[in-house]
């Protein structure tokens, strides 16, 4: 491995000085140098959105825009202020997006969730009352292979205060209709 380069990263408001190989990606630096494993390594080539983090210029305000850390060089991220999923919750507790995702059950395996929630946060920072197509567009760079997205869109609407979480009663198991009772009687087979 080549000699390391010294870089400074501003992650979740904290300044870190690191010695990393020149080709280190931001995602690798977050996960393996800083131990912030909330950002996920999915496709690792910029397709799936699991590595999404929020970034803005250091001099800027707010949390910034969603970018992909797996195809950003750590060296090239030194001028940015990065927010990862670990930095989303504030002193008051969970971010409304995180609370809404939990309330709506907007996850199954959870792998896409950090990226999904950060994309949702960036959307709501920019547009506090998005329409459903705007939500779908903003999350179109985050792939989820479990949920079918319905509850994820619902969670973003809940986080935006546009609706309450859907009440989903537990599904009753079907009772056999009386007419079926005969059909269901198993005849004993006499040898």
């Amino acid at each position: 491995m080549r000699p390391s380069v010294f870089i400074r990263l501003l992650v979740n408001g904290e300044e870190h000085a690191l010695a990393v190989p020149a080709q280190r990606t931001l995602l690798e630096a977050l996960r393996y140098d800083l131990g912030l494993t909330g950002s996920k390594q999915g496709c690792d080539k910029g397709d799936c959105g699991a590595c999404t983090v929020l970034a803005r210029e250091r001099a800027g305000e707010g949390r910034g825009e969603a970018i992909l850390s797996c195809i950003t060089l750590a060296q090239d991220a030194q001028d940015l202020a990065i927010t990862t999923i670990e930095g989303l919750a504030g002193p008051q507790g969970l971010d409304p997006v995180q609370r809404a995702f939990a309330d709506c059950g907007a996850l199954q395996c959870g792998f896409c969730q950090p990226g999904m929630m950060l994309s949702a946060r960036a959307l709501l920072d920019d547009n506090p009352k998005p329409t459903l197509p705007q939500i779908q567009e903003a999350l179109s760079g985050n792939l989820c292979r479990c949920t079918g997205y319905t509850k994820i869109y619902e969670a973003v609407q809940v986080a935006a205060g546009l609706r309450a979480p859907a009440q989903r009663a537990p599904v009753q198991s079907e009772r056999a209709a009386p007419s079926d009772s005969k059909a269901q009687t198993v005849k004993e087979i006499v040898p």
Partner: peptide, 12 residues
């Protein structure tokens, strides 16, 4: 997981 090859990064 795919890692980048050894590189030198110049930042003009």
């Amino acid at each position: 997981m795919m890692t980048l090859p050894d590189l030198t990064v110049l930042r003009p």
